[in-house]
C-alpha cells in the first residue's frame, strides 16, 4: 500500500513537473517536484528509505524528458541513495536530513546531467549552469519543501496510517 501510494505520488509529481511547474522559473532554474516528493516520502515516519523509489522516479522523469533515461535514473537513484545513507545516521532530526538530502540530491542530479551534456558536445558554461540553473533550482526546491512536506505528512497519515495504529 505504501509503495503504491509512493508510486502514485511520484506519478502526480511528474505530471505537474511536465505541465505546470516549468512555467514557474527563477532565472533558468525550475522546481524539481519529483525529487522533493521522493525525498519527503522516503523520510516520513514509519517509512523506510528505499533507493528503488529513486529508480521509479528516474524512469518517470526519463520518460518525459529528452535526456536519456539512464542519466535520470542514475541521478534520482543517487539522490535516493544519499537520502537512505543519511537517514538516522548523521542527524536524528528528520528536517535536517531532508534539507541535506535535497541539497545533495539536487547537486547530484544536475552534476550527472551536466556531465552527460558536456560529453555529448553541448556548449554549456559551467558557471552559467551553476549560477543560472542549479542555484535557483536549489532555492526553489527549498521554498517548496515545507508545503510539500506538510502535504505529504498529512497524506501519509490519511492514506497509509502507521502499522501500529
Amino acid at each position: 500500500m505504501r509503495t503504491l501510494t509512493a508510486v502514485l505520488l511520484l506519478l502526480g509529481a511528474t505530471l505537474l513537473q511536465v505541465t505546470l511547474l516549468p512555467r514557474i522559473r527563477m532565472l533558468q532554474g525550475s522546481v524539481d517536484l519529483v525529487l522533493i516528493v521522493l525525498l519527503t516520502w522516503m523520510l516520513q515516519e514509519d517509512n523506510r528509505p528505499d533507493w528503488r523509489l529513486g529508480l521509479v522516479a528516474g524512469l518517470m522523469v526519463g520518460y518525459a524528458s529528452a535526456l536519456p533515461d539512464l542519466i535520470l535514473i542514475a541521478g534520482y537513484t543517487l539522490a535516493a541513495l544519499i537520502c537512505q545513507l543519511l537517514h538516522r545516521r548523521i542527524w536524528q532530526v528528520r528536517m535536517l536530513t531532508l534539507l541535506t538530502s535535497l541539497l545533495l540530491g539536487t547537486l547530484a542530479i544536475h552534476l550527472i546531467t551536466l556531465s552527460y551534456l558536456w560529453l555529448s558536445d553541448n556548449p554549456l558554461s559551467a558557471g552559467d549552469a551553476f549560477n543560472l540553473v542549479t542555484l535557483p533550482t536549489l532555492l526553489l526546491n527549498l521554498i517548496l519543501l515545507l508545503p510539500v512536506n506538510a502535504l505529504i505528512s498529512e497524506l501519509n497519515k490519511l492514506i497509509a496510517p502507521p502499522a501500529n495504529s
Partner: peptide, 8 residues
C-alpha cells in the same frame, strides 16, 4: 508539456 530538465 515541457521538458522537466531545466538544462534542456
Amino acid at each position: 508539456g515541457q521538458d522537466p530538465s531545466p538544462f534542456l
